[in-house]
Design a protein around this nucleic acid. Structure first.
Lengths: 345, 345
DNA sequence: TTGTATGCGTTATCAT
DNA sequence: ATGATAACGCATACAA
């Protein structure tokens, strides 16, 4: 009595969302099984109070019809599962997986889910993703390079946590990195080791107003270092960019004894360039990175770097979401990098 | 006429999903603004046909009330956005971000969204995530270590793509890696270079039935290599595991001239151990890795490895989802690693 | 331009 | 054990 009608429904069924064919609903299954839609619901959810035989039969029909419950209809009726949207610039850059791990862990701990999207380092995509993801989630955690004003039209009413943008906000929650303190610690370390002819490899960040340059100049002045603006080279934020910048710096100032890299990626590039140039690290020239990527540990020598707890950063972001969902705009959470002295200084 | 009632609604409002307080709906806004809920809908969605003044007023009230449209109610009525669930063992392991990047790219290209979760290398979590994510998405892409039979009770009716499990399936779509071919290529490479005393560092994978051991033995037999089972050491699938395994292998067979590592992570560990032992790579002992992690490029010397296009693997997985959603069970997609000869052989 | 009525697919309440 | 009916929050056709 169950396995009679067959071919019509099975063939030609398109899955939900695939445009054409209508979706298979609880009622379709009910009709095909000769029961009420309510009974089908019970069967699907194994809510006791149902004849085992009936359940088996209904489940069978459901399978035949390729029935799939609608998460929307379900979400409408059942207690909501909090979903956080996460926007990062680049999943492959080893910086972000660590950050993401923190977000996942904190979210999972709360029973939340995470919808992830990548801007592929394209600022304009930030805006479109803000829009599209925004309508699908309960809150958004995002790396963003635009100021609030430009964001405003795209952020609807979604609670938003902005990560490491380096700009204040009166409407969104923030998680910030105290880069200035980090740079200062790195500079002090080099100076403590007796370095005075220090160069810096800087990069053009998307929004951040050259904190590194500023702090570098400040510290240089405080300690009367014999360096001026020509000791600061600007390069691409890549391995090759770091290499090229190191070469440029070394060409301009062969007597440089220490280099501060924009970040570890750039630092690794610089290390490779140094090797090619026959500059021994750290004997001829010390090198300090920034970020504390775990891969810097594998280098030879391992890179001295300002280690930032990226995982914690992610956890803090979720914590900010927490507050936002509770209806309050929390003060910015700030994290400071920690100097990790290893082989290159 | 708009800014009259205030305090009652604003205070005490809890956000959606936060348990208590009821959700602010379109009708609440309508009532507060003194219009019909339809007008509010128009205002929110900027669907022309509305007096600009009315719209402004409504939007204002909506903001005051912290109104947020329900994604569920919306999804119920509007064309569905396909959401793919992605389950990986570990976000931080550099292998997976590359894979994820492929999934994101392919998904984005189709206008799909991706919900990500990590099992944290815990097989039991695979099952629970399968369940919880399964009800929130249209299809699932997952690394899984269980056989179909154990999966069955947890995979409801969700279309599922299993990645690199190394076991056939009659109900789920697959994306596989031809590991045997990879190992074979690596062995051939070593043999071509004249190596005969080859060792292998193997690991206990969760499900995969020691493909490496099997192929290693086969090739060894085919070429009558002077090696037996004692040339195969099994270690943890970590940096330290690789180092320990290399030391063990080297202790047992000091005359080993080449080592095949389970994967790059293990290979890097082996490389570090070799350096500590004073074994020069590749002069004293060659080393081959597996996976082709991009960081192996930064090592000194860069690791010769069997490069797997993990990004492509992710794209293929999404393509399998495509088929599944179209109602067909596609044949397994298979990817073969490519030998990438660099500094360690 | 605005309001009224209806349906989306599910679960929950209450009968039977 | 099963079925009828009413929400859930939103958008859309249609009426005013």
């Amino acid at each position: 009595m169950a396995g009679q009608r067959k071919t019509e429904e099975e063939r030609g069924r398109r899955s939900p969302g695939t445009g054409t064919g209508k979706r298979v609903t609880l009622r379709d299954v009910a009709e095909a099984a000769g029961v009420s839609h309510q009974t089908v619901s019970r069967a699907i959810n194994s809510k006791g109070e149902i004849d085992p035989e009936t359940q088996r039969r209904v489940l069978d029909v459901a399978r035949r019809l390729r029935y799939r419950p609608s998460r929307f209809a379900r979400g409408l009726v059942r207690p909501e599962v909090v979903t956080v949207g996460l926007i990062v610039p680049d999943v492959v850059n080893p910086y972000f997986p660590e950050f993401m791990a923190g977000v996942f862990a904190a979210a999972d701990q709360r029973g939340w889910q995470v919808l992830v999207a990548s801007t592929e380092n394209t600022p304009s995509r930030e805006l479109t993703l803000l829009r599209s993801l925004g309508r699908q989630v309960d809150a958004l955690v995002s790396y963003l390079s635009h100021p609030d004003a430009e964001l405003e039209p795209h952020v609807g009413s979604v609670p938003l946590v902005i990560v490491d943008r380096g700009m204040a906000s009166s409407t969104h929650a923030l998680v910030e990195v105290d880069t200035a303190a980090g740079i200062r610690a790195g500079m002090r370390h080099l100076i403590d080791r007796g370095h005075r002819r220090i160069g810096i490899i800087d990069c053009t960040p998307v929004c951040d107003p050259f904190v590194r340059r500023r702090v570098f100049a400040e510290v240089a002045a405080e300690h009367a270092l014999p360096v001026d603006d020509s000791w600061r080279v600007v390069g691409e934020q890549t391995l090759d960019g770091g290499a090229a910048a190191f070469e440029a710096l070394h060409a301009a100032h062969p007597d440089v004894t220490a280099v501060f890299a924009f970040n570890d990626l750039v630092g690794i590039g610089a290390l490779q360039a140094a090797r090619r140039l026959g500059v021994r690290v750290p004997d001829d020239c010390a090198l300090v990175g920034y970020d504390g990527l775990s891969i810097t540990d594998l280098l030879d020598p391992p890179l001295t770097t300002l280690h930032l707890d990226k995982r914690r950063l992610g956890e803090l972001a979720v914590h900010q979401v927490d507050q936002l969902l509770a209806g309050e705009l929390p003060p910015p959470a700030v994290l400071t990098p920690r100097l990790n002295v290893r082989g290159t200084t």
